[in-house]
Computed example of a mutant assay.
Amino acid sequence: MSEPLLTARQVGVRRGGREILQGADLTLEAGKIVTLIGPNGAGKTTLVRCVLGLIQPDEGLIERRPGLRIGYMPQKLHIDPSLPLTVKRFLTLGGTPRLPLDEVLALTGIESLTGATMSNLSGGETQRVLLARALLRDPNLLVLDEPVQGVDVTGQEALYRLINDIRRQRQCGVLLVSHDLHLVMATTDTVICLNQHVCCHGHPEHVTNDPAYIALFGESAKPLVAPYTHHHDHTHDDHGNIVEKDQHRHA
């Protein structure tokens, strides 16, 4: 088994005497998608900032593989509408990329947008540009904070397919932050449900039936995320661990 890209052990963060995050564990591996879910105020952003190295935890430990390169896609982009910033200019700001721009444009399907002004892009186009910018670093790990925010349902499905294709092609690890599991179940390997601490974790099918998940999101959340098709060459136990090889389909 290869060395994890990043491991967080018993991470805790306090602010103003209040526990924002307690005893959180997280393991990110190459070629695997981990989805972090939870309600607003659950500590998702705090844990992501710890992963990115932007804040240091008050408790616990984060270990990164030596030389780890992280590509980060923020939740929102604020650009002054009066600023004539083109997509190409935006992507080339901030240093020399590790991957050729043309390769990243093709990978994210935005070749035709290079001359467009950032402020004139649709929600889906903006998110693809942000994803392209994160990929220019040739990351071992992609951290995507609410990557489908402001995108319609059809666009969300397309973006999740693209993220899945990228992890397969480039074998990078992905930490994906979401409010729920709708549309992401088919490509997620592990789900971590957070509410100041890890309430439950494992394979998506297991998590959506966990009492802690139902307590947070309600019984009504189950039908929304349950129908999906997910191809495997293995099965999982109740904790999401691979237990044997086979070929099956969830529906």
Results as ranks from 00 to 15, higher is better:
121 L>M: 12
46 T>C: 00
162 L>N: 11
82 S>F: 05
58 D>G: 14
9 R>G: 04
7 T>R: 14
85 L>M: 13
69 R>Q: 11
202 G>H: 08
214 I>G: 06
136 L>N: 08
247 Q>H: 15
202 G>N: 11
53 G>I: 04
203 H>I: 05
17 G>Q: 06
73 M>P: 07
102 D>L: 03
114 T>G: 04
176 L>A: 03
114 T>H: 02
229 T>L: 14
53 G>T: 01
25 D>P: 01
10 Q>K: 13
45 T>H: 11
234 H>I: 02
16 G>L: 07
171 Q>C: 05
130 L>W: 10
251 A>L: 11
221 A>P: 09
249 R>H: 14
9 R>I: 06
185 M>C: 15
246 D>N: 15
6 L>K: 06
189 D>E: 12
84 P>E: 05
207 V>Y: 01
234 H>A: 09
107 L>V: 02
141 L>S: 04
136 L>F: 11
23 G>T: 14
224 L>T: 12
112 S>L: 09
177 V>M: 01
207 V>P: 00
70 I>D: 05
149 Q>K: 09
68 L>G: 12
199 C>E: 11
160 Y>C: 08
116 A>E: 08
79 I>H: 07
145 D>R: 01
95 G>R: 10
49 R>F: 04
245 K>L: 14
147 P>H: 08
65 R>A: 09
198 V>Q: 12
251 A>D: 12
75 Q>K: 10
38 G>F: 01
75 Q>P: 06
246 D>G: 14
34 V>P: 10
114 T>R: 13
82 S>Y: 03
197 H>F: 11
129 V>G: 13
70 I>C: 02
28 L>F: 07
144 L>Q: 06
68 L>D: 12
223 P>L: 01
65 R>E: 09
226 A>L: 13
53 G>V: 00
112 S>M: 11
147 P>E: 11
232 H>L: 13
15 R>I: 04
234 H>G: 00
138 D>F: 03
142 L>N: 11
167 R>A: 02
79 I>Y: 10
92 T>M: 11
126 T>E: 09
6 L>P: 08
7 T>Q: 14
98 R>T: 07
118 M>D: 09
242 I>R: 15
165 D>T: 12
248 H>V: 01
55 I>G: 13
134 A>H: 11
222 K>D: 01
211 P>N: 08
128 R>G: 07
113 L>P: 10
166 I>H: 09
203 H>A: 14
144 L>A: 00
47 L>A: 01
126 T>W: 05
81 P>H: 06
205 E>K: 04
26 L>A: 01
166 I>K: 10
140 N>K: 05
138 D>A: 15
249 R>D: 12
119 S>C: 10
148 V>W: 02
52 L>M: 14
89 R>C: 02
18 R>F: 09
41 G>K: 05
104 V>A: 10
206 H>L: 08
208 T>M: 15
27 T>Q: 15
248 H>P: 00
109 G>F: 07
113 L>G: 06
78 H>M: 12
169 Q>R: 15
68 L>Q: 11
173 G>T: 02
84 P>A: 07
175 L>N: 03
227 P>T: 03
202 G>E: 12
101 L>P: 05
146 E>D: 09
242 I>A: 13
100 P>M: 03
20 I>G: 07
1 M>V: 07
20 I>Q: 14
222 K>F: 05
61 L>Y: 02
25 D>A: 00
212 A>D: 12
198 V>L: 10
81 P>D: 03
130 L>M: 15
192 I>E: 00
109 G>K: 01
114 T>Q: 14
